[in-house]
Nucleic acid binder design. Structure first.
Lengths: 126, 126
DNA sequence: CTTGACATTGACGCTGGCGTCAAGGCTTAC
DNA sequence: GTAAGCCTTGACGCCAGCGTCAATGTCAAG
């Protein structure tokens, strides 16, 4: 299939697909006229990328999953590198959550100073 | 005082101070030679900006606080606009935290699929 | 033959908050 | 006079993930 059809089926823009290719995440065969030619495997790669991005992964984070799929594995997380990224992302998310909770309580404290009675607790601070 | 001294005392770069001025957050008087000339009030404004940014506020978020201070209020959160920003930021932070928790549990679920026994819970899911 | 829907590459724009360099002017100290 | 250390404005760079425009090629339908 050509790039427009892949874009429609994957729910992304053609620009995004070219960008993924530029970043080395997907590689398209070329038809005789120079058009990119994709197959169902490419669709799976793009869907994998998008589902990872939907949970906050960057394109670089997605790379091991894509390579895992391309190496013939039935799923992108069947490789050690992918699992390592999962664990790292979990740690990153946990750090972000902790940071946000800390910042939330600081803001809530300031709001309480500025406007006593304005702030209703959320369980952030003990 | 000139820009270098203000920068040192506030713990920011001169570049940042010029940027804040360009964004209309602070306004410096000028000496006869064209140099920016700041006073203690300006220092307070910059300190306010930095403390707000430290908890995740953007420069635009900080604007009402700065204007509040410049209007003669003893503290930046003594104005209605500032309180409104506090409440909006609290809501934004809460939304971010919820989103992160949701994403964390999705990632954890995927990790559990990929590597059973890898994931140890964190209290995110019941 | 022409229109229209597809495709190509290349390049600039966007967001925020600056860092960094260029090219020069002011002031003081030696 | 000259070196050092401050200051000025202007402009490009950076990060990610594309959006958008330009100029042009390809191909099937009418």
């Amino acid at each position: 299939m050509r790039i427009g059809e892949l874009a429609r089926r994957a729910g992304v823009s053609t620009r995004a697909l070219r960008y993924y290719e530029q970043q080395g995440l997907i590689q398209a065969r070329r038809s005789a006229n120079g058009y990119r030619d994709y197959d169902e495997t490419d669709l799976r790669l793009v869907v994998e990328i998008r589902s990872l991005m939907a949970v906050g992964f960057t394109l670089e984070d997605a790379r091991p999953f894509v390579e895992c799929l391309r190496s013939g594995q039935p799923s992108g997380h069947a490789c050690a590198d992918s699992v390592a990224v999962y664990r790292r992302k979990l740690a990153e998310i946990d750090a972000e959550i902790r940071s946000l909770i800390a910042r939330r309580s600081e803001v809530a404290a300031q709001l309480a100073l500025a406007c006593p009675g304005c702030v209703l607790p959320k369980g952030g601070e003990p």
